[in-house]
Amino acid sequence: MSAYGYAATASQLVLVVAGAPLLTGLMRQVRARMEGRAGAGLLQPWRDARKLLRKEPITPVGTGPAFHIAPALVVATALVVAALVPLLSTDTPLAGRGDLIVVVALLALGTVALALAGLDTGTAFGGMGPSREMTVAALVEPTLLMAVLALSVPAGTTDLAAIVEGAVHDPARLASPASLLAASPLTAAALTLLAYAVARPLVALDPGPAVQALPVGLAVVLVGFFVLATRRRALSQVVGFLLLDNGITATAFLATSGVPLIVELGVSFDVLLAALVLQVLTARMRAAFGTTDLDDLRELHD
């Protein structure tokens, strides 16, 4: 705990407050470029904030304290989280005041405050948003806490500074089976979102029911690739390959308006054959090495 620590905490706060709008700007810019638009630039959220702050605040008739306090409370939880998370230094005066579980809970508190503000207006849209937000929040909480578990078990503590220090000294420690367990579904979800984002311009060309399903095909391709890249067992590799193959086929079918039956039959046969060949290879590999771990194939190198 030193002057350096205080300075680090203060700069963390400034960094988060100044950087958060830039992140929003970056996301919007990337999406605009992917959709073939020029975009408003990285600084647009900052300009928006300046404009909104200058506007006259009003009180809608029929709303209560929850509606007024909620926005400030959301900012407050974000500020406290920004101060707690060791972004710049692990030796801050706030070390030990709260841990990873507290951070997750504080983020949830902001969500709850926003939902209450929406319900406070008593309009139809004011209810619809909170209803959906709380549904998503209820399902996100287990995922987040599983991630907390995955980070804390190898470190032996939920203390943020300790986890970060451990990760800096021994990065491999975080790649435990538990953390992969939590990371894989998250990555798969991110890849699916990416597939939807990438396919948006294509879908916009022809919003028919078949093309609407195009992102699903792309998502299967990406998840298949992810499985191929990260799994160790040969059998998991086979599953990944089949996913990839299915995804490509589905994308092809959905993007074009169907292919002749003979090609379809050929593709199905091809998949069947590939599955058989891969199974045979896997069995051979097990017989030769006693395992199906791909890392053992390195022995063939020399």
Partner: peptide, 29 residues
């Protein structure tokens, strides 16, 4: 790990339940 997941899920749904009780029952019109 299952227990942690169940506790987290119940905490998440509890938030939805009490936002409903407070927001719909006491706030609003």
């Amino acid at each position: 790990p299952l227990a942690v997941g169940l506790i987290a899920l119940s905490a998440g749904i509890a938030a939805a339940a009490f936002v409903k009780a407070l927001g719909v029952g006491f706030f609003s019109r």
